[in-house]
Nucleic acid binder design. Structure first.
Length: 419
RNA sequence: GGAGAGGUGGCUGAGUGGUUGAAAGCGGCGGUCUUGAAAACCGUUGUCCCCGCAAGGGGACCGGGGGUUCGAAUCCCUCCCUCUCCGCCA
């Protein structure tokens, strides 16, 4: 969330910045300013009273120790105590309202985010590799997979429902090999492996920004304040919630393989065929905690780490900068990596790498102590897919397919395909 | 699922309802001493909020939330978490 002090001290800057997302937060910012004025007013009043109460309490203690009568002061303080209670309870809803309003405001965009309102205005940064050429009409992955008997959507529909799949035989092995391969690559680039819980509570979802605005996107476990993770970002980023890290610990770089669960509410009729958009998919996620002044360069290296996987798999891809209107709620700057999909004759998102600045750190209360000044500041958090495993499998099947319906496997994966 | 114990500052660990933000020890930081280091000794050591240009002043925080009281780390309620024993179980 944004810094309350920043919002009330420069409300017009906040409004102007978020216009670039196509959002008008002027009314909500105004509300916050009004509430904050009221809040300060009450605080000043109640704290003055508390001061007098504290002083009286000490006087009472002294009198009692001396064996003298404190009844007159006691009587006076009764009224003060009630007034304090009244003011305190006035404060509670004000602060709760401010908090709720702040939670609804998206992150400020970095200055270099491209202007635009939709996907169409995203800026291509680079394209690597030529779109794969075929001497025959390439098939979509679900045809290849079903024909080979290694993807079974029908059975998944019976056993569970729509948007699930069984991977069998070679597909299952390939999926597992991809996970191993990705972890091995990132591990070699300084990421520490972490295997988090696949279920989190609502506080963690609020910490990373999924809650309260995107509640309907996650699966809730009935009867608990538990939710299936929509991405490893949630448990891994919240790993340091409510902590003050020493600066020498930074940057912290984690990689996590997890399945991800998304309700895909509102995407009915979109990508219904195949395993492009599933309720459950595997992903290797990269998460970084860094010093504020380093987050921009850490974003560049994060994208590089994700790209490395596609390079080694020799899959053609491009990198785009999301425009203001397409940038996610919590992000200040996002690169998407899109892999070539021959069946669609287009690029398909396979990774999203974002710099969240201090937005998540503020929500999750993750800070660090500056080594030289000893001052405490919020860290910056970043994360990116490295990569979405299911979609990588799609890309492999489609880009490496042969005319007879079979497909080959890149050499780098062979040692992970053992058993 | 049944029974019990406990949650205090970076850590260990005291704490009688009344100058307790909290003893003590460890750790950390600064200093004295030393050619340097260690040891010893001295000092220092949390976060958030409000007022203030600042200096400074004030408030809050002892797992979370509520209550009793002039006053709560200390009493009461509730939730969460950790640990031990029994049962069940991958």
């Amino acid at each position: 969330m944004l810094d309350l002090k920043k919002v009330v001290s420069a409300p017009e800057d906040v409004v102007r910045n978020l216009k670039r997302r196509g959002a008008d937060v002027a009314p909500i910012v105004q509300q916050i300013c009004d509430l904050d004025d009221r809040r300060k007013e009450v605080i000043q009043k109640v704290e003055k009273l508390k001061q007098s109460r504290n002083e009286a309490s000490q006087a009472i203690a002294k009198l009692k120790k001396a064996g003298q009568d404190a009844a007159p002061i006691l009587e006076k303080m009764k009224a003060v105590a009630e007034e304090v209670k009244a003011l305190d309870s006035e404060l509670v809803p004000i602060e709760a309202d401010i908090h709720q309003l702040l939670l609804q405001i998206p992150n400020l965009l970095a200055e270099n985010v491209p202007e635009g309102t939709s996907e169409a205005q995203n800026r291509q940064e680079r394209a690597v590799g030529e779109p794969t050429q075929f001497s025959f009409p390439p098939k979509p992955h679900f045809e290849i997979g079903e024909q080979a008997g290694i993807l079974d959507f029908k059975k998944a529909g019976e056993v569970t429902g729509a948007r699930f799949v069984f991977l069998k035989g070679q597909a299952a092995r390939l999926e597992r090999a991809l996970i191993q391969f990705m972890l091995a690559e990132h591990g070699g680039r300084g990421y520490e492996e972490i295997l988090p819980p696949f279920i989190v509570n609502s506080h963690s979802l609020e910490g990373t920004g999924q809650f309260p605005k995107f509640k309907e996107d996650v699966f809730k476990l009935e009867g608990f304040d538990y939710y299936l993770i929509p991405t490893a970002e949630v448990p891994v980023t919240n790993y340091y919630r409510n902590e003050i890290l020493e600066e020498k610990m930074l940057p912290q770089k984690f990689m996590a393989y997890t399945p991800c669960f998304r309700s895909e509410a509102g995407s009915y009729g979109k990508d219904t065929k195949g395993m492009k958009r599933q309720h459950q998919f595997n992903k290797v996620e990269l998460v970084k905690f860094v010093q504020p002044d380093r987050s921009s360069e850490e974003l560049e290296s994060l994208v590089g780490d994700a790209e490395n996987i596609l390079r080694k798999l020799e899959l053609p891809y491009r990198v785009v900068s999301l425009c203001g209107g397409d940038t996610g709620f919590s992000s200040s700057y996002t690169y998407d990596i899109e892999v070539w999909s021959p069946a669609n004759m287009g690029y398909m998102e396979i990774s999203s790498c974002s710099n969240f600045g201090d937005f998540q750190a503020r929500r999750a209360n993750i800070r660090y102590r500056d080594a030289s000044t000893k001052k405490v500041h919020h860290v910056h958090t970043l994360n990116g897919s490295g990569l979405a495993v299911g979609r990588t499998l799609i890309a492999l099947l489609e880009n490496y397919q042969k005319e007879d319906g079979t497909f080959t496997v890149p050499d780098v994966l062979k040692k992970f395909l053992g058993n």
